[in-house]
Design a protein around this nucleic acid. Structure first.
Length: 769
RNA sequence: GCCCGGGUGGCGAAAUCGGCAGACGCAAAGGACUUAAAAUCCUUUUCGCCGCAAGGCGAGUGUGGGUUCAAGUCCCACCCCGGGCACCA
């Protein structure tokens, strides 16, 4: 039995909750309506919308926690795949996901094509590139993904690549630089040129992408990806084709970190479009089909990878860039002066790139081109749960969208989950066999469902208007909450959820549903919770469930522990040995307030009152500052502890009046961090209603002022003594007091005073020789 | 290899703008209360040396330099740890 009320805490993501909830409560007490989808639990409000309807503050603030997503989405009826939960049909959730899908299909932003994709054998489904971590599924970290070729639905996130990049300007300052860098790398925009090479004795051309067209005279061969469509045309003999297949297999089996370069000569030659030289055409396993054109020109003199390849296969190396004088190191990727390049020799790299690209364009064998690393978002999943993709395959009409009036397409309930890798929906005849909406003939319904990252991309908009039956949400209803003022989440979402939701926001912006181009103004990424020095994960088996801590100490102690262990942006080691301190602290607060809530001993006010009030106002100032600037709640809680420690020493001499004031303000300051205890104390103090509806205490800088300062005195930079002066004492006085100080004189004696540095209210340093 | 973080007592950490390094807490030791234990309250606690003692002296924020009256904080070089990216042409 705990000595104070413990409360409840949903323990899914205890750290994220503690941080977000503390902020939400503080902002509320500072006079903002806070839209914080999950935080109302902590506030004690029954329903999410009650808060919006019962607006009580003129100012508004939107806060969302990524870790709260699961619970928020569950409320909205979105599907959840996290625990392989099988959702029942939630018509509104399907309807609007499907509605968006149709809008994208109309605009060419949703399309279907065959693709080799990452397949997780454990999930029995394909995954998007973003969802593959170290070659394994993001949900099954020890299960390597396989490659499978199948028909897949994609969302054209690449069409938004430039806007996703450009709009980062709006996020600078509000988002951690680290996340922006990760997204920038992920999008991977690079500018260059595409160039066609004729093939000797063949009408086809090979198109390559390069960022260094200035080095093209150094190209001594072309290298195509093993899977390049032209490979089969160039290599016609059975033996050669077998070798290609073997090379693909061998590459797939290798550790991607130390891939051995494998090359196959096609026996064919290409014509260099600038020099007219005949250069061999190779296939190489390090050339990626999925990037650029799947073919490169190898410039071994100036590219490390090409060098390695060409050296291995005895392909000539021809330097064409002279490093700029003064620069040393490898010339591999550096700009310099072009040489051995016919009429272009002597130009700087940059100028050469511009002019050579223009030349290629004039002679119709190339053009400037931009390539991205990011690929379209593959959203097809062969799972039962998730939104059915609202499409019908008709043998006569092709792919036909389900008419909007027929939405939502609901999942059948009579499904057996086989786990065989085929979509379970395939086996439900009544679901699959439908009539074509166009011609009325027999047709088959699409059986793939959508990636559940689709749901998380826009749930926070729907959350603000959850019961709308006519639209995903009403623009005017949600406009006031967006963009989100503050989003809190783990760094793990940097290139998953956080890029998808930015994309979705832009699509909705283009559909004129919203006016904001970005979903959130500010992003805060809290540090990871570590156990044994590494991030907790199911595969490592080091996941700690804090439920036990909550059962033993209560949720408030658990919150305090989480917030006190480290500043929120820093990783924290989950080490329960220090939780006792938080438990003891809450007990100390509880006992002090209950002892002093309604004392009637008529003790007179005196010096202790003054001292206690000073400490109180200093604490208010400190915590207010922490909330307003840096959220280092560990120091906020430490200062509350200091206040309580001081109160314990002064308690015997406090007047009832001062004690009462202090109890109230202390309780209010505790509320963001330990809401249940604070609420109980607030009741004990004889108040009615929720403590978080009280105004955050203001500090009085007069009361916070120290009467007498203790100022350190240094001699030659070493601390030798202290002097006592009132605040704001003049320099001369400090100087004089310092020189009169016994301890100081002992060190100055016999020396010549060179200089005295006086920093008012801070320090005196005497320089003596 | 490239790009970010970070390195402070036995431990988690604090020092927010260049101004007393180690706040606050854990653990440990001692004491009070108690028949006893728990709980609670109080005290000590960076390291080394000197002293019976009050106290004093010296060293100290990964390493080596530098700037400054003054450096955990700024500059240069390096070491170590963590994270992200990585045949992206």
């Amino acid at each position: 039995m705990l000595p104070y009320p413990s409360g409840k805490l949903h323990m899914g993501h205890v750290r994220n909750y503690s941080i977000g909830d503390a902020l939400a409560r503080y902002m509320w007490m500072r006079g903002y309506n806070v839209l914080h989808p999950m935080g109302w639990d902590a506030f004690g409000l029954p329903a999410e919308n009650a808060a919006i309807k019962r607006s009580m503050h003129p100012r508004e603030w939107t806060l969302s926690n990524i870790a709260h997503m699961k619970a928020q989405m569950r409320r909205l009826g979105f599907a959840l795949d996290w625990n392989r939960e099988i959702s029942t049909c939630e018509p509104e959730y399907y309807r609007w996901n499907q509605w968006f899908f149709l809008k994208m299909f109309e605009r060419g932003l949703a399309y279907r094509r065959e693709a080799r994709l990452n397949w997780c054998p454990e999930c029995g489904t394909v995954l998007a590139n973003e969802q593959v971590v170290n070659g394994c599924c993001w949900r099954h970290e020890t299960t390597p993904v396989e490659q499978r070729a199948m028909q897949q639905w994609f969302l054209k996130i690449t069409a938004y690549a430039d806007r996703l990049l450009d709009d980062m300007k709006q996020l600078e300052g509000g988002w951690p630089e680290r996340v922006l860098t990760m997204q920038r790398n992920w999008i991977g925009r690079s500018e260059g040129a595409e160039v066609d090479f004729d093939i000797e004795g063949c009408a086809d051309k090979i198109r390559i992408f390069t960022t260094r067209i200035d080095t093209i005279y150094g190209a001594t061969c072309l290298i195509l990806a093993l899977e390049h469509p032209l490979a089969e045309k160039l290599v016609t003999d059975a033996e050669g084709r077998l070798k290609i297949k073997e090379a693909i297999d061998r590459t797939a089996r290798q550790d991607p970190d130390s891939l051995e370069k494998i090359g196959l000569f096609t026996g064919r030659y290409a014509v260099h479009p600038f020099s007219g030289a005949k250069i061999p055409i190779w296939l190489g396993n390090f050339v990626l089909m999925g990037y650029g054109t799947g073919a490169i020109m190898a410039v071994p003199a100036h590219d490390e990878r090409d060098f390695e390849f060409c050296q291995r296969y005895n392909i000539p190396i021809a330097p064409v860039i002279r490093p700029v004088a003064g620069e040393d190191g490898l010339p591999y990727v550096e700009d310099g002066v072009v040489e051995n390049s016919g009429e272009w020799s002597g130009l700087g790299s940059e100028e050469a790139r511009r002019k050579m690209t223009a030349f290629a364009r004039e002679h119709s064998f190339g053009e400037a081109a931009v390539t991205y690393r990011i690929k379209d978002w593959g959203i097809s999943r062969q799972r039962y749960w998730g939104t059915p993709i609202p499409m019908i395959h008709c043998p006569h009409c092709g792919i036909v969208p389900v008419p909007e009036k027929d939405l939502p397409v609901l999942l059948p309930l009579d499904v057996t989950i086989t786990g065989t890798g085929k979509s379970p929906l395939e086996s439900v005849d009544w679901f699959i066999n439908v009539n074509c909406p166009k011609c009325g003939g027999a047709a088959r319904r699409e059986s793939d469902t959508m990636d559940t990252f689709v749901d998380s991309s826009w749930y926070f908009y729907r959350y603000c208007d959850p019961h709308n039956e006519h639209a995903p949400f009403q623009t005017s209803t949600i406009a006031r909450w967006f963009p989100i003022d503050q989003y809190i989440g783990g760094i793990t979402h940097a290139i998953l959820h956080l890029i998808y939701s930015r994309f979705w926001t832009k699509v909705m912006h283009d559909l004129t549903l919203i006016s904001n181009a970005e979903p959130t103004k500010n992003l805060f990424t809290q540090g990871m919770v570590l156990k044994g020095g590494t991030a907790m994960s199911k595969s490592k088996g080091n996941v700690v469930d804090p439920d036990e801590m909550v059962a033993r100490y209560g949720a408030d102690t658990c919150r305090l522990y989480t917030l006190f262990a480290a500043p929120p942006e820093k990783d924290m080691e989950w080490d329960e040995s220090s939780v006792d301190g938080q438990y003891r602290f809450l007990g100390r607060v509880y006992r002090f307030v209950t002892r002093n809530a309604a004392r009637e001993d008529g003790r007179a006010t005196g010096a202790s009152d003054r001292e206690a009030l000073r400490k109180l106002h200093q604490t208010i100032r400190k915590i207010t500052n922490d909330f307003d600037s840096r959220w280092h709640f560990n120091t906020s809680i430490a200062s509350l502890m200091q206040l309580v420690n001081e109160l314990y020493t002064l308690e015997a001499d406090l007047s009832a009046e001062a004690a009462r004031t202090i109890c109230e303000k202390l309780t209010l300051m505790l509320a963001p961090f330990a809401p249940y205890t604070a609420q109980d104390l607030w009741d004990t103090l004889g108040h009615n209603g929720p403590v978080f509806r009280q105004t955050w205490p203001a500090f009085d800088s007069e009361l916070a002022k120290e009467d007498l300062l203790e100022i350190p005195v240094q001699v030659n930079g070493k601390l030798r003594g202290h002097i006592h002066t009132p605040l704001g004492a003049p320099k001369e006085q400090l100087e004089q007091l310092a020189l009169e100080n016994d301890k100081v004189t002992a060190f100055v004696e016999g020396k010549r005073i060179v200089k005295i540095i006086v920093v008012p209210d801070k320090l005196v340093n005497i320089v003596a020789k």
